[in-house]
């Protein structure tokens, strides 16, 4: 298992390097001149030139890339062009809320999806199975922002039950808890369907396996057969598939944050791109990519931990 983890870690390094390189090149290919933007539209050429020297933009690309990596290693992601705040500071303030939103979504969506998928697989072909499957196809077809807007309109506006703009403090405070409900229902809502679908397929596979027949033959209760012998084995592919869906979750998070004005990294990234704040856009994209690579790595390792066959490999 250790070897497997190391192997995955080694594979992740070139990907991470690629991310950093793309992040760096992003600044190079953009037609806007960073020095000009920083100096403002009315600056004289001398001033722009001085700023260019100051920012090291007059150096060759590989020197700039080296400096950029060196700064990154020190946690320096540059300074926002718009409000002069360090990018790392803004990122530090937004990562927490994004992780909080993702956790609050997964904590109910994954168990519900697994339960629905197992139920549908066990009662394969029944009305309940069909309803669950129809629901899950609808779930992967609904735009995240549609779900969010519907919840805002009904629960937030018409019925005045819950707040729908921004974060109101830590999730354990009453206000903070109330504020995260609608975003978490939105983001988790589009995740239940895929999880249910994957679980159903995996459980169906396992239910027809020999060891399940043996478990039944030796007279175990159906409950034990399904929960201990079928679901437990089915969870291995489900964990992997959920890991693969993290990208989908991330995409949903960006949209959900925008819809609910949730102060997360996704909203920060979109705002930075729309206002041409390149250092901020670059920093957010690098951090989101690196986080994504890290999560994939963790899923891989977790997968090895769950499946004893992988440990030897």
């Amino acid at each position: 298992m250790l070897r497997h983890s190391l192997h995955r870690l080694l594979l992740a390094i070139p990907v991470l390097f690629g991310v950093l390189l793309i992040g760096f090149l992003l600044m190079q290919v953009v037609p806007t001149d960073a020095a000009q933007v920083r100096a403002g539209p009315s600056a004289t050429p001398d001033v722009v030139e001085a700023i260019r020297r100051d920012l090291g933009l007059d150096q060759p690309l590989y020197v700039q890339f080296g400096r950029y990596l060196w700064r990154l290693a020190q946690g320096d992601l540059g300074v926002s062009i718009i409000n002069n705040v360090p990018v790392s500071q803004e990122l530090g303030a937004t990562i927490g809320p994004t992780l909080e939103l993702m956790a609050a979504s997964l904590i109910w969506a994954i168990p519900l999806g697994i339960a629905m998928g197992t139920f549908a697989a066990y009662w394969r072909g029944s009305i309940a199975d069909r309803i669950i499957m129809a629901f899950s196809v609808a779930g992967v077809s609904v735009p995240v922002f549609f779900l969010g807007l519907l919840l805002i309109w009904f629960v937030g506006f018409q019925w005045q039950l819950l707040p729908f703009t921004g974060r109101a403090g830590p999730v354990w405070s009453w206000d903070g808890f109330q504020a995260i409900i609608l975003p978490a229902v939105t983001l988790g809502g589009v995740f239940v369907g895929p999880v249910a679908r994957m679980t159903r397929t995996a459980v169906l596979d396992v239910l027809s396996a020999d060891h399940v027949r043996t478990a039944r033959a030796k007279g175990l209760t159906e409950r034990l057969v399904v929960l201990r012998h079928a679901l437990r084995n089915a969870l291995i592919p489900v964990v992997t598939l959920i890991g693969l869906q993290i990208g989908f979750l991330l995409g949903g998070a960006v949209v959900t944050e925008t819809v609910f004005s949730w102060p997360g990294v996704g909203r920060l990234a979109v705002g930075a791109i729309l206002s041409s704040d390149l250092p901020m856009a670059q920093g957010t994209i690098i951090v989101l990519s690196a986080g994504f690579i890290l999560v994939n790595l963790l899923v891989d390792v977790l997968y090895a931990g769950l499946d004893p066959r992988m440990r030897a490999a």
Partner: peptide
């Protein structure tokens, strides 16, 4: 392809929009 798969579509979208503009 594995490396490209490590980037979810939305991230690719953000990066491309940052480069070429929305």
């Amino acid at each position: 392809m594995d490396m490209m798969l490590s980037f979810p579509a939305i991230l690719v979208g953000l990066a491309i929009a940052a480069i070429f503009g929305p």
